[in-house]
């Protein structure tokens, strides 16, 4: 069901809060306005906090998909 094309991918399942957002933010910083970052994250705290933190920076969540291994993939569009 996913037809979104991301411009970059980052996996933050290997880090813990507060590094989760920091790692994703670094990846987002390399993109230009309007480009899409694909982020793989764990359920719970990262899913609660990372998309919301991007929202606070003006980015928009385009799609969130639950993966078969219990992680989530979020597509987030950079502000602009």
């Amino acid at each position: 069901m996913n037809d979104i094309k991301a411009d970059a991918f980052v996996d933050i399942t290997d880090v813990v809060c507060p590094t989760t957002f920091a790692k994703a933010k670094v990846a987002m910083a390399r993109l230009s306005e309007g480009q899409i970052l694909e982020i793989r994250m764990k359920a719970g705290e990262p899913l609660q906090n990372v998309p919301r933190s991007f929202k606070e920076e003006g980015a928009q969540v385009i799609k969130v998909i639950e993966n078969e291994d219990g992680t989530y993939t979020a597509f987030i569009k950079k502000a602009g």
């Binding site: 359920a43 899913l47 998309p51 969540v61 385009i62 799609k63 969130v64 998909i65 979020a74």
Partner: peptide, 10 residues
Amino acid sequence: CIFCGLCEAI
């Protein structure tokens, strides 16, 4: 709503 699915997931 753009039906991104975030609210359902969290």
